[in-house]
Computed example of a mutant assay.
Amino acid sequence: MSATQAIAEAFTTARAAGRAIDAYPGTPPATLAEAYAIQAAAIARWPDAVKGWKVARVNPAFAAQFPEERLIGPAFAPNVHSVAAGAEAICPVFEGGFAAVEAEVVIVVAEDQPAGKADWTADTVAPLVKSMHIGVEVASSPLATLNDIGPGAVISDFGNNWGVVVGAEIANWQSLETIDVETFIDGQSVGVGKVAIKPGPLGALAFTLNKRAEQGQTLKAGDVISTGMITGVHDIRIGQRSRHVFAGVGEVNVQITRAVGR
C-alpha cells in the first residue's frame, strides 16, 4: 500500500469507528498536490456522497509551502444539516480528537458548473448562487493536533470537516456589503466578526469552482459551500451548545454530540 493510501485508510478507518488517533498516521504531506491526493484517496474510500465543500483560509505562516489563499475539504450528505429558525442542529464530533464550531455563510449552488471553466472570480460567480444562508461549520477530526500540523494535514483529512449547518436564507445578500456576527458557547460570547460578502463568500465559491475544475471535477446544483470562518475557530466539547447570531438575519443553534461508529 502506498503512503497516500495508508494515510487515507488510517483517517477513514478512525472516522468510521468514531474514535480518535494519537498521531498523524505517517509523514504529513509537504505539498498541496500530496495533500489533495490523500484527500481524493480518502473520499474514494468513504461510502457517502459528497454534498458540498468547506472552504478555509491558508494560515499565512504556511503560505510559502502551500501557496494558495484557501483550501477545501468535502462535506458528505449525512453531515449537511438544514435547520429551521428556532431549531437546533445535532452535530457529532470525535471524542478525543479535534472539535470546533465556526460561524460561516453557506452558499447553495444554483446549477451544475460548466466543465473546464477555471477562471471564476468573486465578480462573476453570482449566477451560480441559488441562495445564501447563515450557517456553521462543525470542524472535527480524529486527530486533536490536526490544525497545528498545518494546511497539508488539514486537507488530507477531509479538510477537518464533519458538518455543515445550513440556517436561514439571507434573502437580500445581493444588496449587503457586510454582516456582523457573534458566536456564543453555552451562553458565553467567544468571538465577534464581520463578513464581507464579495471577497468572503463569493471569493470562496470562486476558489472552490476553480479548484474543482483543476481537479477535473465540477460542482453540482444543490451542492453547499461553507465559505470560511467569521468569528474564529472555537473549540467545543461534547455536550456543549453553540449559538451564532448574524445581525439583521437570524441565528443558528448547534448541539454537539459524540460521533459513533458506523
Rank of each mutant, 00 (worst) to 15 (best):
R57D: 08
V105F: 08
G97C: 09
A64C: 07
L143A: 01
A6T: 14
Q113C: 13
A100H: 05
A103F: 02
S2Q: 13
F98C: 00
V129P: 09
A103M: 02
N59M: 06
A115M: 10
A17T: 01
T12F: 12
A41I: 06
V80T: 07
Q39P: 08
R19E: 14
C91R: 12
A115F: 11
T4I: 14
G18A: 07
K117S: 02
I21S: 03
I43W: 05
E88G: 00
Q65C: 02
H81S: 07
E69G: 15
I38R: 06
D123H: 12
W46T: 13
A75G: 09
A75I: 14
F62E: 01
D119L: 01
V50T: 11
S140R: 03
E95Y: 04
A30P: 07
A20R: 12
R15N: 13
V50D: 02
K117P: 00
P127S: 01
I43Q: 13
A110H: 02
A16E: 15
I107C: 03
F66A: 03
W46I: 00
L143I: 08
V106N: 01
H81I: 13
P67D: 08
I107R: 03
A33M: 09
A23L: 12
V58F: 01
D112S: 06
V80K: 03
A85L: 11
A23H: 15
A87F: 03
V55H: 01
E34C: 08
A100W: 07
I21A: 08
A10K: 12
A100M: 08
P28H: 11
I107G: 02
K117F: 09
A122R: 09
F62M: 03
F94H: 09
A49H: 05
I134D: 01
T124R: 12
A40H: 09
A37N: 06
G96W: 04
T124Y: 10
A100P: 05
E137W: 13
Y36D: 07
A17W: 00
I7S: 04
P28V: 10
T27L: 03
V101I: 15
A126N: 05
G18S: 07
T124W: 09
R19Y: 09
L32M: 14
A89C: 11
H133L: 10
A61K: 15
G73H: 05
L32F: 14
V109I: 15
A77R: 11
E95Q: 14
A110L: 00
A20G: 00
L128E: 00
A35H: 11
Q5T: 03
I43D: 10
T121N: 11
L128P: 00
F62P: 00
P47H: 05
T124V: 03
A35I: 09
V101F: 07
G52I: 13
S140V: 05
T12N: 15
D119K: 06
A139I: 14
N79C: 12
A103D: 00
A6I: 06
